[in-house]
Amino acid sequence: MKNTLFVFGLVFFAGQLCHMGVPWWGVAPIGVLAGWLFPQNVGRGFIAAFLGGFLLWLSAAYLLDVPNEGILSARIGNLFMGLSSGHILLLTGILGALPAGFGYLTGHAARSAFGTK
C-alpha cells in the first residue's frame, strides 16, 4: 500500500516540477521510474500511476480553466466535435494518465526483467 502511494506521489509531485520546460511526454519516464523504484501488484501500481498522471494534468488544466471561466475549453470542445468544457478537462486528464500508466507498466516490467530480486 505504501508503494502504491509512492507511485502516485512520485508521478503527481515530480510531474509538477518536471513539467516546467520538459516536453509533454515527460510524465512517461516518471512513470517508468515509479515502476522501477516501487514494485508491487502491477494492477494497483498501474492505477496509482494512471491516477497520478490524470490528476497532474487535470489539476493544472483546471487551475487555468476556472479563472478563464471556461471560455477556451468551450471553444476547444467545439473544435473537437462539439465536446463540452468538462469533456475537454477529462480528456486532458486521460492524456496525462495514459503515458504515466504505460510508463509505469514498462518500468515495472523492466525491473522484473533486469532488476535484482
Binding site: 513539467h19 493544472a60 488544466a61 487555468l64 480553466d65 477556451l72
Partner: peptide, 22 residues
Amino acid sequence: LPALGSFFNPFSGFWLNAESTA
C-alpha cells in the same frame, strides 16, 4: 487534428492560452 499530447499538455499546450477574465 493537432498532436494531442503537446496540444493538451496543461504546462505548455493550449491551456496556457486560457487568459484570466479578471
